[in-house]
Computed example of a mutant assay.
Amino acid sequence: MTVGEAAAAAPARRSLRALLSGLTVITILGLLFGVPWWTLTLAGADWPVGVVAAGSVAFVTALLAFPVLMALGHGARRLDWAARAGDTLLGVIWVLFVWALLGNVAKLVLAAVGVADPTRSRAVAIGAAAVSAGLLIWGYAEAMRVPRVRRVEVTLDRLGAGLDGLRVVLLTDTHYGPIDRARWSARVVAAVNDLDADVVCHTGDIADGTVAQRLAQSAPLGDVRARFARAYVTGNHEYYGEAEGWLDRMRELGWEALHNRHLVVERGGSRLVVAGVDDITAVHSGRAGHRADHAAALAGADPDAPVLLLAHQPKQIGDAVAHGVDLQLSGHTHGGQMWPFHYLVRLDQPTVQGLSRHGARTQLYTSRGTGFWGPPFRIFAPSEITLLTLRAG
């Protein structure tokens, strides 16, 4: 193929990719809205015509409104009211979709034991709707509450006796966003300060939106207390907006922005290197100097001192192992946030939550996150403020 032919073929390939992407989105939306519509309003339930009509209008209206709300809320205009509505609708339809699917499995069981329609389909429809409503109410309360403190002890073979018992508090994925959670943020900070931390870390995804939009919600972070250090690294959501702006904001609030660099914590003659790297997506952001650079982060560090690494995504663990890191702290997964989404997260990440070992030396702690992204619900994936107590080997 000549250069000219290749250039001529490129637009066709882009058009094909755009078409396939569009068809994929349409298919996903069709399933998300179509399965619960079919299960709750049709599918042998023989509801009165008025019920079928009202249910159909509700689902069609929601389906047509959803892409508009998401475009207005998360596109160039960043309208918070639209984001709130679109995100909530996404959460509601996800839960309805999941329980409609499970309801159809239950329908097979009911059929096997002799329950006939319309009783069978009506029972499934009412059951799916009732369970979904209950989970959404509970999930909203879970998302909005101050996270519980999750206490974890981690033994590091190379940690010196002087640092035995070092208290490290981990915040991550606060996602200050279209729902104003300034008071929630202040309560989270109060909970952190009650833990008497030596080091407080934030492993990214501070906010969705610009610094100016989220000034009030991020302001309480300036009141976080730590005996030795407050350290922050970027997450992938910073690179959807103002990565440099959030690095500057955290510096303004008195935090150490570990933009591929490290600091040293010392007590009782023992030392701990606290390093941080940019999120793995930074290299594709187009921002000069932004990429996950473990070598730069550890340049000049004492090779005999243990390393605590902040890296937003668990899948950055491979580079951590290669650079001899002792413990990596990450977030990003939200623990799945809304069951059973954690199964999909697991396809992309080596862990979804908790402590795991990788290689002979390196351990990884993955937080379920302090806040939430998008849908204001947490279902079977509670948020957390993590208190890690480091123990000498």
Score class of each variant (00 low, 15 high):
Val51Trp: 02
Pro178Asp: 13
Gly286His: 04
Trp47Met: 12
Gln313Asp: 04
Val95Pro: 02
Ala229Ser: 08
Arg84Gly: 07
Asp164Cys: 12
Val152Met: 03
His262Asp: 04
Arg150Pro: 00
Thr39Val: 13
Pro306Met: 15
Leu166Met: 07
Pro220Arg: 13
Ala12Phe: 09
Leu263His: 01
Arg167Gly: 02
Asn104Gln: 14
His237Ser: 06
Thr333His: 08
Val113Ala: 01
Thr61Cys: 13
Arg291Tyr: 03
Phe380His: 09
His237Phe: 01
Met144Thr: 14
Phe33Trp: 11
Trp138Asn: 06
Leu253Ser: 01
Gln337Asp: 06
Asp326Gly: 04
Asp279Met: 06
Arg261Gln: 13
Val105His: 05
Trp138Asp: 13
Asp319Gly: 15
Pro375Met: 14
Ser185Leu: 05
Gly44Met: 05
Pro314Thr: 14
His332Ala: 08
Leu263Ser: 02
Glu252Trp: 05
Asp293Pro: 06
Met144Arg: 15
Ala62Trp: 02
Trp81Gln: 10
His312Asn: 05
Ile26Met: 13
Ser270Val: 08
Val149Trp: 03
Ser56Tyr: 00
Ala133Glu: 01
Pro340His: 08
Ala212Glu: 15
Leu136Ser: 07
Gly354Asp: 02
Gly86Pro: 04
Ala275Val: 01
Pro350Asn: 09
Leu64Ala: 15
Leu135His: 06
Ala112Trp: 10
Ala311Val: 03
Arg291Ala: 14
Glu238Val: 05
Val115Pro: 00
Leu171Arg: 11
Ala360Cys: 06
Ala54His: 08
Glu266Leu: 05
Pro314Ile: 12
Ile379Thr: 07
Ala229Val: 11
Thr24Met: 11
Arg13Met: 13
Trp47Gln: 12
His358Pro: 00
Thr24Val: 07
Val52Gln: 08
Pro382His: 04
Arg84Gln: 15
Phe380Ser: 08
Ala141Gln: 11
Leu163Ala: 13
Val146Ile: 14
Ala219Ser: 11
Leu159Asp: 05
Ile206Phe: 10
Ala311Phe: 00
Val105Lys: 10
Arg14Phe: 09
Ser185Asp: 02
Ala8Met: 11
Leu110Lys: 02
Ala85Gln: 10
Trp255Ala: 12
Phe228Pro: 00
Thr362Val: 04
Ala85Ile: 14
Leu63Gln: 10
Leu16Arg: 14
Asp117Ser: 06
Val233Asn: 08
Ala292Asp: 12
Leu40Trp: 05
Leu355His: 13
Gly127Val: 12
Phe380Lys: 09
Trp246Lys: 07
His202Asn: 14
Ile206Leu: 15
